[in-house]
Design a binder for these strands. Sequence first.
DNA 1: CAACTCAGCGTAAACGTTTACTACAGTGAA
DNA 2: TTCACTGTAGTAAACGTTTACGCTGAGTTG
Lengths: 363, 363
Amino acid sequence: MKRSQNSIDSSTPPKIDIRNVAARARVSIATVSRTINHVPTVDPVLAARVWKAVTELNYFPNTQARALVSGKSKLLGLIVSEITNPFFPELIQEFEQVAVAHGYEILIGSTNYETSTMELCARRMLERKVDGVAIMTFGIEDFLLDRFAVDNIPVVFIDPAPTRPLSNVLAVDYYAGIYEGVQHLAVLGHRKIGFISGPLRLRSAESRKATFLGCLHSAGLKAEPAWLIEGDHTLDGGRDAMQKILALPKHPTAIMCSNDMTAIGVQHALFEAKLKVPDDFSLIGFDDIHLAEYTIPPLTTIRMSCKDLANKAVDNLLSRLKPAGAKLEAVSKINTRLIVRQTTGLPKDALLDLIDKPRPKTR
Amino acid sequence: MKRSQNSIDSSTPPKIDIRNVAARARVSIATVSRTINHVPTVDPVLAARVWKAVTELNYFPNTQARALVSGKSKLLGLIVSEITNPFFPELIQEFEQVAVAHGYEILIGSTNYETSTMELCARRMLERKVDGVAIMTFGIEDFLLDRFAVDNIPVVFIDPAPTRPLSNVLAVDYYAGIYEGVQHLAVLGHRKIGFISGPLRLRSAESRKATFLGCLHSAGLKAEPAWLIEGDHTLDGGRDAMQKILALPKHPTAIMCSNDMTAIGVQHALFEAKLKVPDDFSLIGFDDIHLAEYTIPPLTTIRMSCKDLANKAVDNLLSRLKPAGAKLEAVSKINTRLIVRQTTGLPKDALLDLIDKPRPKTR
DNA sequence: CAACTCAGCGTAAACGTTTACTACAGTGAA
DNA sequence: TTCACTGTAGTAAACGTTTACGCTGAGTTG
């Protein structure tokens, strides 16, 4: 099949490649390549001719050919748990922005919390030869990390996980935020606090729960196992978990959730049960998605900056891609902190105490 | 630079390519290629040897090389307005699922409603040589469509728009759903209905508004210009718009919104103003995102199935990519319908009428 | 003025596939 | 036995770049 340049064939528009540009600028293709790649050793006069030709022909280089020869795809993988959970789009947006600013494209994979899907995602990333991967889902199988390691692909992920060659971790300081949250509840007078976790097979969900338990202990409170429910980080999961708690003979007075979606699910369960937040139950979420400000009432939650997360992830990956800045510190810290809005208040039993026990005449 | 296969160099793991497989299977690379591409004219015996080698070496073809020679990138572009609006992740998820099932990867672009970003997205898609593009944002500049047309890239998008060669449209039947919504309000007794639109420079936002106006007319109601506010399809936009309406001397009794996020913003504005839904205002959203079921109270809204949208979009693109099924009908219809939940009720003035006018002693 | 340096251009060899074309072995008919 | 044909396998060209290498000619030095 002959090169179809300058063809009159209407179904095949004249493809313009580096040769066309070279011809028009009366230079070799090497010079064109050097010019558009800003190699300094090219005569400004020729460079000008090249640029003129480039704009006149509306030329842009073929990414595939570039990738093939250079071995770099200029693609960054981003694996998230569930694109449907608003935390992730916020993360993706940020991630994409900074990636594109550095000339990278992103390839998104959504695992839906399933190992098989996760495997597929990783496989797709490998096939597309991504230059680096950020795994923002919680919990990755080790053998997948190995796969990336074999191909020399930098990986960055969230959370406590076995450190391996080429995989850096973005450590989230769960403790700070969750501690603030528990203290906040304790100060309000809550003694009976429940926790709705994420899927516990995910390391990060496990970690949030463990941190909660630790903070509870620090506050001198005891955990009631019946009030530790395993959710799945979704709206439906939050609702179901709260319904389980409501079905219990004894209730907590406050609920902490492993993420905001769970908390919104809880709010809904409470609404259906004609219970009020924060009058009947105090509620704290986690993530501080934009929506948290818009729930009714607005959600008190623990903020984990996804801007921060995305930026640090891309920075980490990119810095390891340019040969110069070889060694970045292997661990970046992501902070968390409590944002108090309107789903936390005095515990119901405290009011009961006031009314029942001392029963002051006043009122 | 010599091919570094079988190198002992620790920093460069032995890359396995088609040649390695061919060698191990004792066949030529052409046979390997034919085997993995399921070309029928290959001896089952050799095929078996090839597959064995493939699995033993854990080989998978280099996508870039494939793309370069075949001219097909197996990449589908998906351009959305704003990845942060939950409607789009739901769409993306669906889209990705069916694309991956057909062996395609997807490249996401988020325009954030800005023409310049949109241009950038289109450019990126062109550079990556996507095989097709679905433009699920509302309103695209014509010259961009031309760009895609020049490269012979099938485009599919939503909505009324000039039909061009190679661009098919997925027509959303706004009328059905919005008509149901307006009727629903009218039957409840609402006569004063406001509308918060999306950004009006977007064709689809304009179209939803026009449809609303038409339906209002059909119901024998008049539009009050002051109650037609331009929002921006975001939470913040919805809140701001509702605040503007509340600042007016005369209020409507019901509000329809151009999307669910706007409606959630409205709910929030009302909450801040200590007004109740649906007692003080009835409210109808649009899209029926999953979250709509979880607002407090749950949002009455007009469902536009994103599953349907995604499926039809991918089907359309894919069917135009395989030479066989050349001609699909150029227009697919997407239905909309009202989902009644708890944000719509009797209008406040009706209650006032009951209380003020007849003022029955009973009570 | 000859020899040397080096900036800067062009040639050609990769990169890992697909696929048109060629070659060859086996089969059946004359 | 020979010829034509069929079914498969292999060879090599092409895809559009980047980049190592070699070459030219102008400037510098002795």
